[in-house]
Design a binder for these strands. Structure first.
Length: 682
DNA sequence: CCAACCTGTCATGGG
DNA sequence: GCCCCATGACAGGTT
């Protein structure tokens, strides 16, 4: 803290710079703070201060560990700085407490970087103007001094939450760069005015006491100005917006040669008259030791920023940006693929408290600004999820011969595929052109698949065209997708076998080979067949696509008879497999329902038994009562002589009119017989 | 080793 | 006639 104060007392400032690099599908947000040195200091005393998440994946020139709490231990060379990951709010509070002129956030987009790299000095100056102008606003202010270069307003959602721009606006800004450029264009002159006013306090650093007062006043002014500027919308020529968009697209499409050295950036800054960096050449930037240590730089701390980037992005360059490996995902993510389709580096973190160096955030589509925290392992997972085995087989000519031979040894052994032994030693290319007959005869169904007859699609991908699938089926089956995504979807219980879960370290071909073995082993027969014949569709697609699309596919693609036969067989078997599964499930459901019904019926039977027993018991009680009543009545009856009536000889009978008669039992018996006879006659 | 179970496949028939 | 679906039967693998 005291060093920072000293720095400020000497007339220094602090610039928060965000460099957004769009490297093809890879986006890198580099967040770092620049301590702007006072004019009295030498240029090599310019320090790079770590932003909250800038050290993620070592993409920024910032240390990967430590805390901002040691910010007071500023070292002139920056080597002993322990600057990583302070809560940004804390940093800002400390800076503001000192009254250091703090340029909240300046974004440099990739297209601009590209133009800078191409030597477009005008745009560079535009950037600088915007960068300087952005200092007039608080974090989150949308500033565009040059009209094209800088997206003010901060790209960090953390700031977007607390800053003038809401999170939703922030996302909108990132998602709609053209509109954002329009929004920020017109405030440049006004903001430059404010900027000049602001930086006067920096330039006259010798009078730092006055500067402190002025800075605090200017800080307030900047807040007010920022608030005023927030809602200002300036128009910008369409061609500029188009240029911006084109440049962005260029950056995304080309994805290469976008390198920005810190020297470039700071030269831009230093070339701007309004900026306090005037006259300071920033060719050699001392980097914190932890970074330079990891970069194996012969120049020790004289590593340019572009070097740092290239050092760290090379892996993904090789995978994602190589013109030979066009891992272009279809724009609409398949529902069957849970992974995020596009990868993006982002050094920001949504959680400021997280330890830098472990944060890899934002593997996101380019239009998606949501943040995700990923570990480096996640990084490899996501990247290599995009690379399936066929891609490896198809694109890597140096693949071990063992891989191919093992694959077809297994095909041969498990499904009757027979390969000429000479093919085992061929490369992938040779394998593609070497006819072989694979015979499948395991369960009576047999078909011959000619491995060599792979049709024309493989060698001539340009001939392939889209298949017009019906609605409900993912119809954007570009060749890129077809070629690179042979994800034969298995059941949920089955392991995902066609995507690589990790990167192959170094030359550990044995591990890779073993993995390929395991992956192939998990493939179904049809998947292996389709793989062997290079059928450009996944089994899942073949089975589930509508019949019209399927027929269209068969007619449109250059498929051999064997491939067509295989496709039909795969489709038939796949559908029948599903049908069998449904049938068994249905049968099981029926059985379960029947068991349930049996249980219910048994329970009902028991209930009825109980009810019957109760009824019988009640009947017996009634009988007993009736018998008792009968006895009681007869005990009270007397004949003409006053003698009791014998119940064994007489019986009581109710007549239709309700009267009760005492009649001999013989008559009762004969009367019953007559009634029963009458009933029978009827 | 055997039986029960699971799963994929084929054949067949109906809609 | 073709396609889809349901289902019995069979075979191979797994438990």
């Amino acid at each position: 803290m005291k060093h920072l104060k000293r720095w400020w007392s000497a007339g220094g400032g602090l610039l928060h710079l965000t460099v957004l690099l769009s490297l093809g599908v890879l986006r890198v947000d580099l967040d770092f703070y620049l301590l702007l040195p006072p004019p009295t200091l030498l240029r090599d005393q310019l320090l790079l201060l770590g932003g909250p998440a800038s050290s993620a994946y070592a993409l920024s020139p910032l240390p990967a560990s430590g805390g901002w709490g040691n910010a007071g231990q500023l070292h002139p060379k920056g080597r002993e700085l322990d600057l990583a990951a302070p809560p940004e709010g804390q940093l800002l509070r400390e800076v503001r407490a000192l009254g250091v002129p703090f340029i909240p956030r300046t974004r440099v987009d990739a297209w601009l970087v590209h133009s800078v790299a191409a030597g477009d000095a005008d745009e560079a100056h535009g950037l600088l103007g915007a960068a300087a102008a952005s200092s007039a606003g608080e974090a989150g202010a949308s500033v565009d001094g040059g009209g094209q270069a800088v997206q003010g307003g901060g790209g960090d959602p953390r700031e977007a939450r607390s800053g003038p721009l809401g999170a939703g606006e922030e996302e909108k800004v990132l998602a709609e760069p053209t509109a954002q450029v329009r929004d920020t264009g017109g405030c440049a002159s006004e903001k430059n005015e404010v900027l000049r006013e602001k930086h006067e306090g920096v330039d006259h650093s010798s009078q730092h006491e006055e500067n402190e007062e002025r800075a605090s006043a200017q800080k307030e002014n900047s807040f007010q100005q920022n608030n005023e500027d927030e809602n200002k919308i300036a128009e910008k020529p369409d061609w500029e917006a188009e240029k911006s968009t084109e440049s962005r697209n260029e950056g995304h499409l080309n994805g290469t040669d976008i390198s920005l050295s810190l020297e470039d950036l700071l030269q831009l800054l230093s070339s701007q008259p309004e900026n306090s960096l005037e006259g300071i050449s920033l060719g050699d930037i001392p980097l914190p030791g932890s970074i330079s240590d990891g970069m194996n730089s012969s120049a020790h701390h004289h590593v340019t920023f572009s070097q740092a980037i290239s050092q760290d992005v090379n892996l993904h360059d090789a995978i994602l940006l190589s013109p030979n490996n066009t891992f272009i995902r279809e724009p609409v993510a398949k529902t069957s693929q849970p992974q995020e389709p596009f990868l993006q580096f982002h050094s920001h973190t949504t959680n400021p408290g997280q330890t830098p160096g472990t944060n890899l955030t934002g593997y996101l589509p380019p239009v998606d600004n949501h943040m995700r925290n990923l570990t480096s392992q996640d990084l490899d997972l996501n990247i290599f999820d995009e690379i399936d085995l066929m891609s490896l087989l198809a694109t890597e000519n140096d693949l071990d011969q063992i891989d191919i031979s093992q694959l077809f040894d297994e095909l041969d052994s498990e499904s009757g595929f027979s390969l000429d032994s000479s093919h085992n030693s061929t490369s992938v290319t040779k394998y593609n052109s070497s006819p072989s007959v694979c015979d499948e005869g395991a369960t009576g169904y047999s078909s011959n698949y000619d491995l060599g007859a792979v049709g024309g699609y493989y060698q001539e991908p340009s001939k392939l065209c889209h298949v017009d699938h019906d609605s409900g089926f993912h119809g954007d089956l570009t060749f890129q997708h077809i070629f690179h995504n042979h994800t034969y979807h298995l059941k949920p219980s089955a392991p995902e076998s066609t995507s690589e879960p990790f990167s192959w370290p170094g030359n550990s071909q044995k591990i890779r080979s073993r993995y390929l073995e395991d992956a192939d082993r998990n493939l179904s027969r049809d998947e292996r067949h389709a793989k062997a014949l290079h059928v450009p569709f996944s089994v899942d697609e073949i089975v589930h696509m509508p019949v019209d699309s399927f027929n269209s596919m068969l007619s449109r693609y250059y498929l051999t008879d064997l491939q067509v036969s295989l496709l039909r067989d795969i489709r038939r078997r796949g559908k029948n497999k599903v049908a069998a599964q449904n049938c068994r499930k249905r049968k099981l459901d029926i059985i379960l329902n029947l068991e349930y019904d049996v249980c219910n019926l048994q329970a009902k039977k028991e209930t009825l038994k109980r009810e019957r027993a109760q009824c019988n018991k009640a009947i017996n009680i009634m009988k007993q009562k009736l018998h008792d009543l009968y006895r009681d009545v007869f005990s009270r009856l007397r004949d003409d002589q006053g003698r009791p009536v014998n119940p064994n000889l007489y019986a009581l009978q109710c007549s239709h009119d309700g009267s009760i008669l005492i009649i001999p039992k013989e008559l009762v018996a004969s009367g019953h017989k007559k009634e029963t006879q009458k009933g029978k006659r009827k």
